[in-house]
Design a protein around this nucleic acid. Structure first.
Lengths: 222, 222
DNA sequence: GGATATGAAATCGTATACGAACGTTAGGGC
DNA sequence: GCCCTAACGTTCGTATACGATTTCATATCC
């Protein structure tokens, strides 16, 4: 049996390729995405490319205007803030739902990942830190009973990642805060706290980074 | 200037048409959506139809399998429950964010709409009731500062509507509860309660209907 | 000189066509 | 009788082609 990954449709290829190029900054915000050019570059025709672009539009990674074309979505700071706020809400709820189902083994794994993250801080390895951060949330939400909610979390993540890659850098102070908050959250979950308390704590974590962001942009403007 | 509605692209037409037919029950869950047939029925070619179907897939209204085709998404009761739960979370947060910005005028308008809903209950007019319910939330979320969050609310709404239309009927008891809860929520907002209290209240409203749903399906099975 | 009309170039939107993948059914072998 | 295989029909996936729309540069008029 051939692997389904190799059998990916042209549309899927185009989607992944363009998404990757947006995420890694090859296509920076405002970059014009011309269907014919993309089709030529990717070695496919315009139809699958168009489908890919529309999907990316639905995810908020590109803006699309009828008869005009598509551009990589700009990073409106306000928009960024709203996305973070939304993510904090959804992630907080997902955490609260997942908490009672994690179990001691999962808790230990999450702690282990967080320890690695702490180590990354000293080695100053932002790429690895980001991947571990994703792993952490994977473990946390592994048993989340609500797949629909989880889907919203993932969408928020990819959107935020696409916004952050090009303009916002890795901020050691904020990352360090994250690790500390993660530990506190895990302790809270281990203590068998109620859903409300856990959700509040999970949200506060995100709010702290949001406040940090506001403080930073405020400092930039002064 | 011609109205943009008349200038809608074929793709948009197809999207609206299929969505409407799913919502009103013309295409019931499990119905096979054949691209060529739809294209013929709608008087367009398959390319825009395909795009419309993929958009509907992204919204969860249809399921799509590669090289197999699309079908109207089934109404897995569990899925329905998860969607409601997610909606309760998102709607609760949106309510909390909107509450401080509604103002006395908006509050009065919301109360007026809710009164109409109460009247509808006596006249037994489910269609009008549903529309007024949408109006109520429109007023409530009119000044919601987070458009991204609001988008999630709307997506949840349409998804729920598509699931409900075909199988779940209008339940007077639940509708009556809604109206009462709406009034309580508006009083709470008017009293200047904190965001946490309001969010909790808004969520409880949805939870009540969720419980009602569970009780009803439980009764059906016995 | 500035504003407006006009043309060409670029790009999108969609129809059509054909190849590929999947499900099904008929036929033959065990 | 059952299973395996092969041919068929159906439907999707994508390339290509062409019409529609927008944009930009140029020329013209006031």
């Amino acid at each position: 049996m051939t692997e389904p990954a190799l059998m990916a449709s042209k549309s899927e290829q185009a989607y992944s390729a363009v998404k990757a190029r947006i995420s890694d900054g090859t296509y920076s915000p405002g970059h014009r995405l011309v269907l014919a050019r993309l089709a030529h570059d990717l070695g496919v025709s315009v139809v699958p490319v168009r489908e890919a672009i529309r999907r990316l539009e639905a995810e908020g990674l590109v803006t699309f205007q009828r008869n005009i074309g598509a551009t990589v979505a700009g990073i409106d700071p306000t928009e960024y803030l709203y996305t973070m706020q939304t993510l904090s809400i959804v992630e907080g709820a997902a955490t609260a739902l997942s908490a009672p189902l994690i179990g001691p083994a999962g808790l230990d794994r999450a702690r282990a990942v967080n320890s690695e993250m702490r180590a990354c801080l000293q080695d100053f390895d932002p790429v690895r830190f980001t991947r571990l951060n994703q792993d952490f949330h994977s473990v946390l939400f592994e048993h989340c009973p609500n797949p629909h909610l989880l889907d919203l979390v993932h969408r928020g993540w990819t959107r935020l990642a696409s916004m952050r890659s090009s303009t916002f850098r890795f901020v050691p102070g904020r990352a360090s805060e994250s690790v500390t908050e993660h530990d506190a959250l895990l302790d809270l979950i281990g203590s068998g706290a109620g859903a409300d308390v856990i959700e509040r704590a999970a949200r506060l974590h995100r709010s702290a980074t949001l406040d940090a962001y506001l403080a930073r942009t405020g400092a930039d403007n002064s």
